[in-house]
C-alpha cells in the first residue's frame, strides 16, 4: 500500500508530549477527602454531633430536671410527656439520659485530652532514646502488666474515700487520667523510633537540619495520623470503662446518673420495666458505635500506606 509522503515527515521534538499532571494535594486535604467519601464515618460524625448538641442543650430545654421526683408517676412507660418514661422515683428518664450523655461525653473527652499527654511522654522517650527511653518505658511496661481496669478500680476505691462529696465524677476523671496516656505514649514512641530510622530523616540529617527542626518538621507531623486515631478511639473506651464501673457501683453515684448507673439501677426491675434499661443501654451502644466507626474511618483516611 502506498501512503501519503506527509505521513513520514518527522514530528517536531516533543510535539506530542502527553503530560499527566494530577493536582497535588496535601496529606490533610487528601485525608479529609477520603473521610468524606466514607459514608459510615461521616454518618457517625453527624450522630456524634447530634449527641453532643443534645448533651449540651437538651437539659436546658427539658421541662424536668434530672433529680426532680414525682411519686405519682413512677415507673411509667414512654409517653408524650415523658419520652423515655419515668424511673422508680418518678424522674424523667429522657432528662436523665441527657444528663448521662454529659457525664459520659465529658469523661470521653477527658480521656482523649489525657491521651495527648502521652504524645509528649512517648515523644520524649522515643526522641531522646538511650537510658532515658529505657527508664520511661519500663515504667509504662509495669503499668501495662495489669489491665487498666484494675488500676482504675484501685484508684476509684481509694478516691471515693478521700473525696466522697462530688459523686465520684472528679474521681473518675483522675482515675482515667492515670492510665489513658499510656497507650498513646507507646504508640508515639514506636512511631518516632521507626521514623528516626527512615531515609527522609537521614536525608534531613545529612543536609544539616537541627534536632529541633527534625523533631518539629519531620517526626511530629508524621505521627499525627496515629495520634488522632488513638485519641478518637480513647473516647469510646473511656465511656465504656465509666459505664462498666458505674454498673458495678464504683462510678458516678446518686443523685447524678451516668448511663452505666442508669442501666445498673434498671437491673432490679428489669422484669417489669425493661424500658428503664433499654434507653440508657441504647444510648451507650449508639455512642460507642459512632465513635468506633469514626475512629476506624479516620484510621483508613489517615493511614498513608493506603494512600494511592
Amino acid at each position: 500500500m502506498a501512503l501519503s509522503r506527509e505521513l513520514f515527515k518527522p514530528l517536531q521534538k516533543r510535539e506530542l508530549q502527553i503530560e499527566i499532571v494530577r493536582p497535588s494535594v496535601t496529606y490533610w486535604q487528601d485525608a479529609w477527602r477520603r473521610l468524606k467519601k466514607n459514608p459510615v464515618a461521616m454518618g457517625s460524625l453527624v450522630v456524634i454531633i447530634i449527641i453532643l448538641l443534645m448533651a449540651i442543650f437538651g437539659p436546658m430545654l427539658s421541662p424536668y430536671t434530672y433529680s426532680e421526683q414525682d411519686f405519682a408517676r413512677k415507673n411509667q412507660g414512654p409517653s408524650a410527656e415523658h419520652w423515655f418514661g419515668t424511673d422508680a422515683l418518678g424522674r424523667d428518664l429522657f432528662t436523665r439520659v441527657l444528663y448521662g450523655a454529659r457525664i459520659s461525653l465529658s469523661i470521653g473527652f477527658v480521656a482523649a485530652l489525657v491521651s495527648l499527654l502521652g504524645v509528649l511522654y512517648g515523644g520524649i522517650s522515643g526522641f531522646v532514646g538511650g537510658w532515658v527511653d529505657n527508664v520511661m518505658m519500663r515504667f509504662v511496661d509495669i503499668m501495662y502488666s495489669i489491665p487498666f481496669l484494675l488500676w482504675v478500680i484501685m484508684m476509684m476505691v481509694y478516691l471515693r474515700e478521700i473525696m466522697p462529696e462530688n459523686s465520684g465524677l472528679i474521681a473518675m476523671y483522675i482515675a482515667l487520667g492515670l492510665v489513658y496516656w499510656l497507650p498513646m505514649a507507646r504508640i508515639v514512641r514506636g512511631q518516632i523510633l521507626s521514623l528516626k530510622e527512615q531515609e527522609f530523616v537521614l536525608a534531613a540529617h545529612t543536609i544539616g537540619a537541627s534536632r529541633t527542626r527534625i523533631l518539629l518538621r519531620h517526626l511530629i507531623p508524621n505521627c499525627m495520623g496515629p495520634v488522632i486515631v488513638t485519641a478518637t478511639l480513647a473516647i469510646p473506651e473511656a465511656i465504656f470503662t465509666e459505664a462498666f464501673l458505674s454498673f458495678i457501683g464504683l462510678g458516678v453515684s446518686a443523685p447524678r446518673a451516668s448511663w452505666g448507673t442508669l442501666a445498673s439501677d434498671a437491673l432490679v426491675s428489669l422484669k417489669s420495666y425493661p424500658h428503664l434499661l433499654f434507653f440508657p443501654a441504647a444510648a451507650i451502644c449508639i455512642t460507642l458505635l459512632a465513635f468506633n466507626f469514626l475512629g476506624d474511618g479516620l484510621r483508613d483516611a489517615l493511614d498513608p500506606k493506603m494512600r494511592k
Binding site: L3, E6, L7, F8, K9, P10, L11, L16, Q17, I18
Partner: peptide, 14 residues
Amino acid sequence: FMPRCDYAMAICAE
C-alpha cells in the same frame, strides 16, 4: 511509544 520516540513521524500519531 511515539511520545518517547526520537524518530516519531506523523503516521506514528495517526
